[in-house]
Every structure is written in structure tokens, then in C-alpha cells.
Design a protein around this nucleic acid. Structure first.
Lengths: 332, 332
DNA sequence: CTCCACTGTTGAAGCGCTCTAATCATTGTG
DNA sequence: CACAATGATTAGAGCGCTTCAACAGTGGAG
């Protein structure tokens, strides 16, 4: 049997389709009696409004699309949680997709959301070109989270990566480290800012820089750490661009028999639950993901409902979380 | 300026809307010349088909909805990857949502997909009632992954939890362990089967059982491990129901100064990348997630395109991955 | 030539809803 | 008691597309 439509409900309740439409959306111009009749009829028929038809007719979807760059990265769920909370509170729906770490998939996820006419899109992390993002922003309110981006069109929410990175290096220098290597994230979201914070702070303290390229994945952390060790350059501390790559670094240090933090200190970024496990106890930087996710939804809805058009850039303040992987360098 | 519609393209190309529709979907009954004219016109206008309208008219969406039980659990991304691959290969789209670990959110995600008229839904993990799931299955082809479920309506894909669990216990017993505690997952997906495998195997070997209730989260692993230690019962090995809770157990053992595996062995389930980190080196059970994700999509499309209606239950064979957290028990 | 079978194309109906403007029913006012 | 005002309801157009039946145009068979 085909699904009941609004007409079926109308017939059963003895009213017009228009009234059913109003009643089901809780309009206050529907008489109490009619309201009850409609709700009863809908209940009896097991009626569920067809969102496709509704969206087509109303040209609104009350839906926000969330694109997660990498499902494997424990950084992102916190953002999703924040978005989920805000969306529920503000009467919207959430629809998610992943970029599967590929700029191409990222763009097609964005296009899909645009074609589905979602009211707004949140892009987290990711590496799609700024041009592609701006292009998308011409079709839908768009906000980019956890990825610093210069744009006249899209809003952004970020933690202050430069500051967070500076805090890390100051912490290590404060402990007495002079030889600090950085495993960068390359072009990944926020990585250039973290690199800049590292370089600026090292320079300010007159220390020599040592950067190895990574990509915010565990694998890249492994490769970068191997290069650090192979380089033969003195190194008493490694600042990895994110927790995930720090875990890769940790693996290599373990395998090489270098004790953490006795022989070498290690810091990550993102304060993920994995790093927080006591067994790992990674010193890291908290980004306030939940807040970022909520903020993103709120900003988006500001655009959707109040028609704001000038782009805003929101920055949340990161904080250093000191755990067991950092200590003074070994005394020679 | 409003977005161009199909009529705009038709006008510009000097053909009818119906022909544009055919051309854009690559029909072979469109003359070469018309095809080119239509594509050119669409290109020039920057036309993108409105999926909502298309879906309404065609009553198909070529979209599969994937509901992930817990974004924080590193188990699920592997399933999503598998689904993503299969979906791309078979010409469908993927849309995701999370149950945010809540049966209520799980059901509303399911309802949302139904209301959006997706062609099929994949439910991973989760704890929604079988009744609710069967109800949903009456509205959309549904498949449940990584959660054993008896149902006449929905397909399922699982690893053989009973077997996997048996392998774990046999491994521990083979190492010489006699006092093996199990941190179960309660009613969580697959947990009862793993519990059964534990109990059956222990019984068969004439060993005493020791079960502490958990819930497949890290926190629950912490609490359960504390109870194991506080119980005063002898225990040389712990089998946690999944990797996530094993990590919680590990935390407690670390804090209590119990060395793993010298004092106590630890096994997880799921073979997540976190457990695989050398620094942790958790012995675990591989579930072939990628395969499960692919299989789910294939089964779903079988229903969608070939109208299969009898439910099938697919089982993939798990395998034990021995790492550094298991060793013979300490000699007294 | 006529007839038929194609190939390519189109008009129009319709998917299930929303929303505007018009209609109907009821009440209050002078 | 006529008339305006208010409240409740509905007809109908329309959202942007697909689809189906119908229709030209072409060419080959008879």
C-alpha cells in the first residue's frame, strides 16, 4: 500500500488539504476541533509528511549540512556534538557527510548539500581550495570551522592556532628545551598558523628551527619522526601539529627506545580523548570544539534567519593541557 | 538572481524542458546536436539540477542513509569507508547522521531519512528497540550492521561475535590464564554474543566466570576495571568487550600500578587504530569493517533494484590480532 | 507513392506539499 | 437589521523536476 498523503488525511478528517497543512505545523488559526480531527486522522493513517515535497514547496529545509573532513580523526566528533546540540535547540535538523580526507569528495559533499537545498553548510577542516569554497558560498550560507581562511563570503570559527602553538613552545622552552622539532601539518587546516607560531617563538628566543613535513595523520607522524631521528640533529622535544600525528611520533620513539618524556618530550594539538588516555598522557592544546560547533550553527542561523551577509571571523582561545609527555630535557 | 531552472536551460538551448531532462541524464535517445546544445546552455547558465524537485518527481533519490551510532568510537569510520566505496561504485550517494549514542536520536535520524525518502538506510551499532527498527523497515529498505538482530524484515551484516570472543578466551587460556574477567558491553551491539562466547568457553574449560557490566565506552571501562580490582577476586587477564572500554581498563591498571602484560593481560575487540598504536599494542579482534560496510550497501541495493524481500543475515569471520598486551600470567 | 517503423522531440499531467487570496461563518456595532 | 470586523477554511496556483503518451520527420520496404 502506498504511503498516505496529506490528501488522505484531509479526506479522513473531513477538511481541506490546506487546513491539514496548517494543523500539522501547529498554526494557531486552526480551530481546536479541526486540530484534533486532523491529528487523529494523521495518527490513524500513520501519516508522515513527505519532507521532499515540503521542502520543494516551501523552499526551505530547516536543515544544516555538516561536512567532516576525516571521520578517523578524533578531533571532529566534538564539533559534531556542539553542532548537534545547537541545531536541536534552534529547531533545525543536521545532515552529515564526510570529505573522506579528499578535496574532491569534500567538494562533492558540498555540492550535494547545495543541490539538496540545505539552509546552510558547515565545513570542518578540509583542504578544498578557497576558490571552490567561495563558489559554494554563492549558493548557500557557508561557514568554515577549524580552518583559518581569508574570505569575504564565508564565516569562520577557529581557535587561535598561532597562540596555541606559541603556548606550546613557551612551555617547552620554560622546561629548558632548546632543541625543539616541529612536525607540521603541511597545508592542512590550521597547520600553517601553528607552524608560524612555532617559528616566531623559536626565533624570538634565538633558537634554531627544525621542521619536518607531515599531514595531520598518524602515518605522516611516523614518517616525520623517523626523519627527525635520522637527521642526527639534536632534539629533546617534538611538537607535532596535531594529536593524531603525535601518536605516530610516539610510535617511532617507542620503537627507537627513546623514553618519553625522560629522553624526549612530545606535544600534540587538539586534546583528543586518545591523547588524554592516562596510558598516553599527551600534553596537548584544547581547542574548545564543542563551543566551535555550537558557534558555527548560531552564526549560520544568523545568516539564514536575519540575512546577515558580511562575513565574520570568530576566534576561540585555546589552552594548554599539560600531561605526562613533557618534562625538562635530560641533563647531558 | 534566482538559480536557473531547467526551463531556463531549455529556453536557451531552444528545446523543450523534457528534452533537457533527458539530455542531462545522458539518455541515448537525444540527438547529438541537441545534447551539445543542452550541455552548453547548462554550462553557460551554471545550471545545477534541483535534487529536491528531481527526487519528488522521480520518487527515487539514489541516496543511502548511514546512521553511525557513536562518532567518538573509532570502530565506525571503517564501516563508513566501506560504504562510501561501494556507494560510489554503484552510482549512489551517501548521506550520514549520528545516533549520538542515544536511542532517541537514533530513531529520529532513521525517521528523518525515511521522510527524506532515501532509497535505503544502514544502521550501524545502536540500541534502538528491535520493534522500532522493524517499524522503520516497513517504510524503507533497512540493514543493520555490526549489531546482531533477529528480524524477518531487516538484513544484517555482522562479524561472528561469539566466535571472536571464543578465540580471545582460547588465546588467553592457551597462555596459561585461569582467572579471566570480562568487561561486557551490556545490551550494546554484539555485546551479548561476546559475553556468550566468553561464558561458554570458560565453562567448557571448567573455569570460573567473572563479568563486570560496561557499555562499550571508555568511561564504563574505567568503572568496570575498578570493580574488578576492588572485588579482590584473583584475575590475571581482562577481556574487554571492545577496544574503547579496554582503553578505560588500561587507564585503571596504569593508575593502580599493574603492569600490562607482566601482571595482567588485556584484550579488546574491534582492532581500532588506537589499540593498534605501538604505544598501546592492544591484542584485539579484527572485524573486517570495510567489508561489512561494502556488503551492507550491496545488500541494500539488491533490495532496492531487484526487489528482494526476504531478510538475509551475512556473517564475516573475525580474526584475532595478537599484540603486546597479552602474555602468560605471572608465575606465583 | 503509400505505409510503416523508427528516431527524436514535446505538451501536459503529476509528484506531495505550501501559501496567497478568496470565501464562508460568526460575532459585534451603530 | 444592515454592515463591518474577525476568525476559520478552502480553492488553486505553483515549487522544479520526471515521465508518458502523442506527435512530427525521415527513410526504407512494398
Amino acid at each position: 500500500m502506498p504511503k498516505p498523503t496529506m490528501d488522505d488525511v484531509a479526506r479522513r478528517a473531513g477538511v481541506s488539504r490546506a487546513l491539514v497543512s496548517l494543523a500539522l505545523r501547529g498554526s494557531d488559526k486552526v480551530a481546536e476541533g479541526s486540530m484534533k480531527a486532523v491529528l487523529a486522522a494523521a495518527e490513524e493513517l500513520g501519516y508522515r509528511p513527505n519532507l521532499i515535497a515540503r521542502n520543494l514547496a516551501s523552499k526551505r529545509t530547516r536543515t544544516i549540512g555538516l561536512i567532516i573532513n576525516d571521520l578517523h580523526n578524533p578531533y571532529f566528533p566534538g564539533i559534531a556534538d556542539g553542532a548537534h546540540d545547537a541545531v536541536g535547540r534552534l529547531g533545525y535538523r543536521l545532515l552529515m557527510n564526510s570529505a573522506f580526507l579528499s578535496p574532491r569528495d569534500e567538494i562533492s559533499a558540498l555540492e550535494m548539500f547545495i543541490d539538496l537545498q540545505v539552509d546552510g553548510v558547515i565545513l570542518t577542516g578540509g583542504m578544498a581550495s578557497a576558490k571552490a569554497i567561495d563558489f559554494g558560498a554563492r549558493s548557500v550560507p557557508l561557514i568554515v570551522v577549524s580552518r583559518p581562511l581569508e574570505s569575504q563570503l564565508v564565516d569562520t570559527v577557529n581557535n587561535d592556532d598561532f597562540l596555541g602553538s606559541t603556548m606550546v613552545i613557551e612551555h617547552l622552552i620554560g622546561l629548558g628545551h632548546r632543541h625543539i622539532a616541529h612536525v607540521s601539518g603541511g597545508p592542512a587546516a590550521g597547520a600553517p598558523q601553528r607552524l608560524a607560531g612555532y617559528e616566531e617563538t623559536m626565533r624570538r628566543h634565538g633558537l634554531e628551527r627544525h621542521v619536518e613535513l607531515g599531514s595531520f595523520t598518524e602515518r605522516s607522524g611516523v614518517a616525520a619522526a623517523q626523519r627527525v631521528l635520522a637527521s642526527g640533529r639534536p632534539c629533546t622535544a617534538i611538537f607535532a601539529g596535531n594529536d593524531l600525528s603525535a601518536l605516530g611520533v610516539l610510535d617511532v620513539l617507542d620503537a627507537a627506545g627513546r623514553r618519553v618524556p625522560e629522553d624526549i618530550s612530545l606535544v600534540g594539538y587538539d586534546n583528543t580523548y586518545v591523547g588524554a588516555l592516562r596510558h598516553i598522557g599527551l600534553t596537548s592544546v584544547e581547542q574548545r570544539r564543542h563551543e566551535q560547533g555550537q558557534l558555527a550553527v548560531e552564526l549560520l542561523i544568523e545568516r539564514i534567519e536575519h540575512g546577515r551577509t558580511e562575513a565574520v571571523q570568530r576566534v576561540v582561545v585555546p589552552s594548554l593541557v599539560v600531561r605526562g609527555t613533557t618534562a625538562p630535557p635530560p641533563t647531558p
